[in-house]
Design a protein around this nucleic acid. Structure first.
Lengths: 112, 112
DNA sequence: GCTTATTACTTCTATATTATAGAAGTTATG
DNA sequence: CATAACTTCTATAATATAGAAGTAATAAGC
């Protein structure tokens, strides 16, 4: 079995945010918003763009330029979609985490 | 709400491996084995020890020296347990990922 | 009709944090 | 000495951060 690395935490979140079926027309800012909403924490936009670049280099997402938008001075946005390999990767990581968290929900954590 | 960072990917896996109820007497090597088994990928021992240090610094795990072991020349192992804060953190990260992966399992990924 | 602002992103620079490989260290036996 | 079963160290690479800067068409102000 070849040597593969684990996706970084933010890379995984970005990939999930793109791969989920409820995600349409994902782009940098919308992805960051998605993650902030799901996690309750802020994420630096620069981090999201950096993660997107890495994910694309690895073949897990693919980008395409949209149409010019009046809303942003005729500039087009860059949209992202997950590739089949990306969805596979996300699912595998997810499965790994699920395996590692067996019974976690039954445990008592710190209150509040 | 203070500014909090996301746990690294390996930190999360290490924390989960320690926090899960089926984990008894977790220590560096056993944690690495656990992760390798759950993920199907190798993880560098040095990475696990580094992650453990960080998790302890952050108050998510706590270490204690076991008893001298004949099996390893009278040296004791260092065992780790998750703190309540650690369990809380693991649960939160887990919940975030679950929220981000809504419907992911229904998607088609790359075959094989 | 020209600046200057505004909008909604995207990119850049510099730095900090996390993860890696591979070698070295430890301590009582064999 | 060599071995066993970890643990630590060194050096480097990959990932993530903050905050500033860049971009292109309209909108505002004079």
């Amino acid at each position: 079995m070849g040597k593969r690395e684990y996706l970084g935490q933010l890379e995984l979140m970005v990939l999930l945010a793109i791969a989920r079926p409820s995600s349409r027309d994902a782009y940098g800012v919308s992805i960051a918003r998605d993650i902030a909403r799901s996690s309750g924490r802020q994420v630096a936009l620069a981090s999201v763009y950096a993660a997107l670049e890495r994910l694309e280099r690895k073949g897990f997402v693919i980008s395409s330029l949209g149409e010019p938008l009046v809303a942003r001075g005729g500039k087009a946005r860059t949209y992202f979609r997950a590739t089949p390999a990306g969805i596979k990767e996300a699912r595998e990581t997810h499965a790994t985490l699920r395996r590692l968290s067996d019974g976690l929900s039954g445990l008592k954590g710190q209150p509040a």
